[in-house]
Design a protein around this nucleic acid. Structure first.
Lengths: 160, 160
DNA sequence: CGTAATTAGATTGTGCGCAATTGAATTGCG
DNA sequence: CGCAATTCAATTGCGCACAATCTAATTACG
């Protein structure tokens, strides 16, 4: 029932489409894998990413978190308010620069890290490959992201 | 600048977090790369994925498209209505099984494929690696997705 | 035949993700 | 100092993503 790929134009779009599907599917599979693990913690996947950023370094401005995760204030503002409502973080204006809102962990937010370790271990198991493979995949994805981002910015400036 | 991994617990969460960030970032970088290319076609990235599925095989039920892309009716129903409003597809009940809604390409939808070839080529360029590397990455991602999906389903059935 | 179980799709509600706009604070410059 | 440009967050609007619920059609089974 499958047609042979004999059209070169079609070959191009096919690989593109497959890489499309693959990365799209893998990202969502990741989210779905995390969901049952994060539900007991009361976190969504993006919220979990924000918490990781804060566990790595507490008391960051919104901008820093956004840069780390590639999210803008339109996404982060409501997300952080929900984390605040959950009692995991506090938001307060920086005294030296009142434009900035600094996000800090509460006691509850700090304590949640212990449980998150369990989540990470479960994910490590679900990923089902060695540390070396995981590292390699991570690096490939980072490199891919950088190439894509670079290509995008060149596209932009070439039009000037 | 890199710290040596001497804390096993912390190592786990760190690698997990990094793979997290990496796949999350790569997926979004992909979407952002597509956006300027798809805007002229009047398509979003998920809509583009649906169109690819239809270009590969026309006249599919919603369910088949959902299985292909891993999306449910809650996502596809409104998305397909938008594609219908754009004049790219038609939706009609299957005569033999009235539960199914079959999605077919219009003339306009079929013709859009020619332009999409240009998109695919631009993406191929932005990905910036050889066909072989792209194929390898695709396969790794597919394998990762399968492991994650499998781990998730085992988790579910183990509770019975 | 008729009822139960299954299946396909639509709808509702919550939470991202991002572009565009707004508003307040800070910085730069004359 | 005063004013323009910049920066940071918040808000608004649109489009996914997905769980939960609902309706209608089909299939299974007694």
């Amino acid at each position: 029932m499958q047609k042979k790929p004999r059209d070169p134009d079609n070959l191009g779009i096919k690989l593109d489409a497959q890489l499309c599907f693959a990365i799209y599917g893998a990202a969502h599979a990741f989210t779905r894998t995390y969901k049952p693990l994060l539900d007991p913690l009361g976190l969504t996947y993006p919220q979990y990413l924000v918490m990781i950023a804060l566990w790595e370094e507490d008391d960051q401005p919104v901008k820093a978190i956004g840069d780390r995760l590639g999210l803008d204030s339109g996404t982060l503002s409501p997300l952080l308010k929900r984390l605040e409502q959950s009692g995991l973080v506090t938001r307060r204006r920086d005294r030296d620069d009142e434009r900035q809102v600094r996000i800090s962990l509460t006691k509850k937010g700090t304590e949640l890290k212990a449980q998150a370790t369990g989540v990470a271990q479960a994910i490590g198991k679900a990923v089902g490959c060695s540390l070396e493979e995981a590292v390699a995949l991570r690096d490939e994805l980072i490199a891919l992201k950088q190439r894509l981002t670079k290509a995008g910015s060149e596209e932009t400036q070439s039009s000037v």
